[in-house]
Nucleic acid binder design. Structure first.
Length: 805
DNA sequence: CTCATACGGGG
DNA sequence: GTGTACGTATGAG
């Protein structure tokens, strides 16, 4: 472990691990206090918290004010320390506490603490924010009970405009000013990847027969049930190795929805203690929400004491919310997408894994090991910025990995800064005006196939506007918002430079890259925290001011581009795709972008963000790009059907390069070949069948009185099932309409016409914007009529779908 | 046409 | 956050 930054107080600087942290710093004046919180020169306490205790790798805290902190210490071991803190909450009025005796606490420059022997106390906060009182107690339950009793309510949630509080771990981190991973490089964090191989997807009728494990030190192991006296011994050995390798982080792909629940279910069935935690405790399940872009997905989190659990599936989904071109979130396809799959990677189809193990266990061992290696690689690529965020935001690493940006990251940091400055905090929605919220500007101008395409965008559009025009929530009385934004922008540049000076792949380079990535995330999060009506520092008017400026800047950029003869294809919030004249070089494009940039307001910079040989513009936010290296990128949901039968995807892969090369005869040929392959039954039924999840039991389904395809298929086949099973079936030919039939390997009685129709109407139809409607029949028609052009003579069309204003 | 329902990912 | 998403596909009526 290396130490970064100047030596602040280390663990030894505070006394008593069972009392509250008592620093021996001298008092400073009120004005210096504001400086400390909002503008600390060099100290950056608003970004990192005031406490620099190094090596924290996990924290557990309870509403009863007990914290358990796991720290990496100098000899490389990990120590658990018990700590006590005072759970706290914020209220606008002490009357909410009813008859609970609370004592006024002496003001100090630190987060207040309860004097010895007191049950509850408060500190009055400065300024005219809504939450004027910070109330502390030995036990959160004292406060909760007193408030609910005086207000006649059942849940604190019902009083959310009157009581503000955070989960216990965050209360602890805010109160102590601590954060994770101080002084630790990414490589100092011990990450363990694991993956189960099971006989079925459902732990009720399946077993674990293999577990692959590896950790960030390069250690690797594959456990086989046969070598450990069966499943119980296998799980036992897994648990033993987790304890022995003692990782800080457990990682897996879809761990929360597969590996963890499966392990829990099997360990219960086999009566094995699943002591995966650092206190030998079993995983605990809770409901949580994964933030993906602006949306929430609910999931069942599993947690163990002393270790963080990370799901790389979540990380991949969150990345796709930014890039929109990840075809599938599965481990194998994500690894290929990011270029992380090795050439020697072993592949085994899911349903084949168990059978393969029986005949060729070595192959499954290789496969399982490749899985955890890919999880490690994905984590290295996608999680390092969250690790760096964890050293700034008062939250656990595993929660940062699923948190949103505004309320998830910025709000806890602002609350920490305000409370440490003794400042009152606004209420959610305090600055929400009646006016309508305006979003970013999006418009598609041209559809069809275009050549010589360039994407230019404004670098950090919204944060640049906030800095250039000094826009912040009006409720931010401490001006922490612009202060943090400025500091982050500055520090990010510094980390970028420091990183570039390091050897590629070195631990220091990874560290600086992670820091700059984390800072980029924070910088881009400030806008979001203003735009949310339910965020403490939300200010719709300020957010609207930002987007309005953003629209103006984008419009100005587009005017300049058009004035220079460029054709606009599509604009989205902070960037625009356009065509440049045939024969232009990269340098010509850079020059153009620089020229346009000079016309834009001070503080706004535009960047060349990509160049493409061809673009097929289909719908707003849905397009296909082909690089000068021939590589194809499909962006948007329109090219990603949820029931992607393999044959449709294969058609896309074959026909799209031809389409972009304007080889319409080739497109026709691909289509005809695929139609022929379907009709002559050369397409294997695996490529046509769908697999459907069964959630209802046979009784529940019969009782529902409704008809659902997947259950009807099973009933017709006289098959039994349980909730959690999957059924695979296809559309079989029978009379005029055909019917759904249970999948059998090698079946050829599928309804060819059904699949031909689908190929035409759901896959081929996505290519329609490339040609005139009257040419569609010669591309994908059943037979060419006498008026239809020969496909080789089709001319591509570009349609102006919106006039540029 | 509209309405209802299910998918994603893991073996 | 107790905000079970979202956009898409399919079949029934």
């Amino acid at each position: 472990m290396r130490s970064q930054g100047a030596g602040g107080p280390a663990a030894g600087d505070w006394v008593g691990s069972n009392t509250l942290l008592c620093y021996t710093r001298t008092m400073i004046t009120e004005s210096e206090m504001l400086l400390t919180a909002a503008d600390a020169p060099g100290g950056d306490s608003t970004l990192f918290g005031v406490d620099e205790t190094p090596g924290i790798v996990s924290v557990l805290a309870t509403y009863a004010g007990q914290a358990r902190v796991w720290r990496r210490v100098n000899d490389g071991s990990t120590q658990a320390e018990n700590d006590a803190f005072n759970p706290w909450l914020l209220v606008p009025d002490l009357a909410l506490l009813g008859d609970l005796p609370v004592e006024r606490l002496v003001p100090s420059d630190r987060f207040p603490t309860l004097p010895h022997g007191r049950q509850a106390g408060y500190r009055e906060l400065d300024g005219d924010g809504h939450y004027k009182y910070l109330v502390l107690a030995r036990n959160f339950a004292f406060l909760e009970r007193a408030i609910l009793r005086s207000q006649g309510r059942d849940r604190l949630w019902d009083l959310r405009d009157h009581v503000y509080y955070r989960p216990p771990v965050e209360q602890y981190l805010v109160q102590t000013g601590r954060a994770f991973y101080k002084g630790m490089l990414w490589e100092d964090v011990r990450r363990m990847q694991f993956d189960l191989e099971t006989t079925s997807l459902n732990p009720l009728d399946g077993e674990i027969f293999m577990i692959s494990m590896r950790d960030s030190s390069g250690w690797e192991r594959v456990l086989d049930a046969n070598e450990h006296g069966g499943e119980a011994g296998l799980i036992g050995e897994f648990v033993r190795l987790v304890g022995e390798r003692d990782p800080d982080v457990l990682e897996g792909h879809n761990v929360f929805d597969f590996d963890m629940p499966y392990l829990v279910a099997r360990s219960i069935a086999k009566e094995v203690h699943l002591g995966m935690g650092r206190d030998d405790d079993a995983p605990v399940e809770s409901r949580d929400a994964l933030k993906v872009g602006a949306r929430n997905q609910s999931f069942r989190r599993h947690s163990v004491a002393g270790r963080e659990i990370i799901d790389t599936l979540h990380a991949v989904k969150r990345r796709d919310a930014i890039v929109h071109d990840i075809r599938s979130y599965g481990l194998k396809s994500a690894a290929r997408y990011f270029g992380l799959a090795s050439a020697e990677r072993e592949y085994v189809e899911g349903p084949e894994i168990h059978r393969t193990w029986l005949m060729d266990p070595e192959r499954v061992r290789r496969y399982a090991l490749d899985d955890v290696r890919e999880v490690d690689a994905l984590s290295g690529l996608l999680m390092a910025s969250s690790y760096a965020l964890a050293s700034m935001v008062p939250k656990t690493y595993e929660r940062i990995a699923t948190a949103g940006t505004g309320q998830g990251l910025i709000e806890p940091m602002l609350v920490r800064a305000y409370l440490w400055a003794g400042r009152s905090i606004p209420r959610a929605g305090a600055a929400i005006a009646e006016e309508k919220y305006i979003g970013g500007y999006t418009r598609m101008y041209l559809s069809g196939i275009l050549s010589n395409v360039v994407k230019a965008d404004v670098a950090s559009l919204y944060p640049s506007i906030m800095l250039a025009y000094e826009i912040a929530p009006r409720t931010d009385s401490l001006r922490v918002f612009p202060g943090m934004l400025q500091k982050l922008t500055h520090l990010r540049l510094e980390h970028k430079q420091l990183g570039r000076a390091q050897l590629a792949g070195s631990a220091e380079r990874v560290y600086h890259d992670a820091m700059q990535g984390a800072m980029k995330i924070l910088i881009n999060s400030f806008y979001g925290s203003m735009g949310a009506s339910f965020a403490l520092f939300g200010d719709i008017a300020a957010a609207t001011q930002v987007t309005q400026r953003g629209q103006e800047i984008l419009q100005q950029m587009m005017r300049e581009l058009r004035a220079k003869g460029m054709r606009l294809i599509e604009a989205d919030t902070d960037g625009v795709y356009f065509t440049v004249p045939e024969g232009w070089t990269f340098e010509d494009e850079l020059r153009l972008v620089a020229e346009v940039g000079r016309e834009l307001p001070e503080g706004i910079t535009i960047e060349h963000d990509g160049r493409y040989a061809r673009m097929y513009s289909y719908q707003e936010k849905n397009y296909i790009l082909q690089g000068y290296d021939g590589k194809i990128k499909m962006v948007g949901a329109a090219f990603k059907s949820s029931r992607n039968e393999p044959y449709g995807e294969q058609f896309f892969n074959e026909a799209l390069p031809k389409l972009l090369a304007l080889d319409f005869a080739g497109v026709r040929e691909s289509f005809e070949q695929r139609v022929y392959a379907i009709r002559s039954k050369q397409v294997p039924v695996e490529d046509l069948a769908v697999t459907v999840f069964l959630s209802k039991s046979e009784e529940a389904y019969r009782a529902s009185g409704k008809k659902e395809e997947q259950y009807e298929v099973l009933l017709a086949a006289n098959a039994r099932w349980k909730p959690g099973d999957r059924v695979r079936y296809y559309h079989a030919a029978h009379g005029r309409h055909g019917y759904k039939k249970l999948y059998e390997p090698g079946a050829t009685d599928y309804d060819a016409e059904y699949y031909v129709k689908k190929l035409r109407e759901t896959y081929a139809a996505r290519l329609c914007r490339a040609v005139a409607p009257e040419d569609l029949n010669s591309l994908f028609g059943e037979m060419r009529g006498m008026f239809d052009r020969d496909p080789s003579e089709i001319k591509p069309v570009v349609v102006e779908v919106n006039p540029p204003e």
